[in-house]
Design a binder for these strands. Structure first.
Length: 264
DNA sequence: ATACCATGAACAG
DNA sequence: TGTTCCTGGTATC
């Protein structure tokens, strides 16, 4: 389940298996079949991650776009062998090194560089990219009367934060989600950006969302379940102080917070 | 077998 | 603000 860290991690992990070689592109499920034919057999030059979006740069100049949404998921089968598709496989990418299947995306289409640019133009800076300009995000926050908890999910403010990171970023900065973004101090807004950068980077590294300080609260061995790596997100009580977490619907989703640690 | 839920976002009104 | 779409895992009968 994908916030920006997942997307960047996918680009990193899939690139060595797919780029620089011809790729058989198909759609076992069928809904991507016509688009698949447009690039089938071409060489994939690059996979680009931007916020929660993936762009596939094909040798013909076409650009594929994938957005996982809430449900989208990749399955990687290493090796040259044929693999039977499991479930609803919208897009299949196969090389001599691997077969990669995509199921459940919100968007999956072949377009042009202009289409790609139009999508990127709707996005704020991506904290995971070297070319990110934090000033744009800080400025949008400083000018908005919207609650900071709503703004953090707005991809044109910054691209890549989702529901889990929004809750955790506000928690570690002791900011109540309902505080209007414009009312935060400059230092607070800068701290929010810095925290987002650090958390997303760590998410890419860990390949999962772990925002808690391991020294203070060791993460249980094995794959943690959702909520095991967080202070307030998906938790009934605040990990730090034990107070029952609050939930506010902000930008249409439940925003978890600690009423004690994040004073209004 | 069925219901419900999820780290998302576009669209209608 | 509410509805819709995408899929599959887990919970509940």
């Amino acid at each position: 389940m994908p916030e920006g860290h997942t997307i960047h991690r996918i680009a990193k992990d899939h690139s060595p298996l797919l780029t620089g070689r011809p790729v058989a592109v198909s759609s076992p499920q069928g809904r991507f079949a016509a688009d698949a034919a447009l690039v089938d057999g071409q060489t994939l030059e690059r996979i680009e991650a931007y916020g929660k979006h993936l762009f596939y740069w094909w040798s013909s100049g076409r650009v594929g776009h994938v957005h996982l949404g809430l449900f989208g998921k990749y399955r990687v089968h290493r090796g040259p062998g044929a693999v039977a598709p499991q479930g609803e496989v919208r897009m299949r990418l196969r090389t001599d090194l691997a077969t990669i299947d995509l199921a459940g995306p919100t968007d999956c289409a072949i377009g042009t560089p202009d289409d790609r640019d139009a999508i990127v133009a709707r996005l704020g800076p991506d904290p995971l990219r070297r070319d990110a300009k934090p000033a744009e995000a800080l400025q949008r926050m400083a000018r908005s009367k919207q609650p900071i908890g709503a703004l953090l999910l707005d991809q044109k403010v910054m691209a890549g934060v989702g529901n889990a990171y929004r809750a955790e970023v506000l928690f570690v900065n002791a900011i109540h989600p309902l505080r209007p973004a414009a009312d935060l101090s400059d230092a607070e807004r800068e701290a929010v950006w810095a925290t987002v950068v650090a958390m997303l980077r760590k998410g890419v590294k860990d390949n999962r969302i772990i925002t808690i300080d391991r020294k203070e609260f060791p993460v249980p061995k094995g794959a943690p379940r959702r909520g095991d790596g967080t202070y307030v997100y998906f938790r009934d009580t605040c990990l730090r102080c034990g107070t029952p977490t609050g939930r506010l619907t902000l930008a249409g989703r439940d925003c978890y917070y600690c009423p004690a640690c994040q004073p209004g």
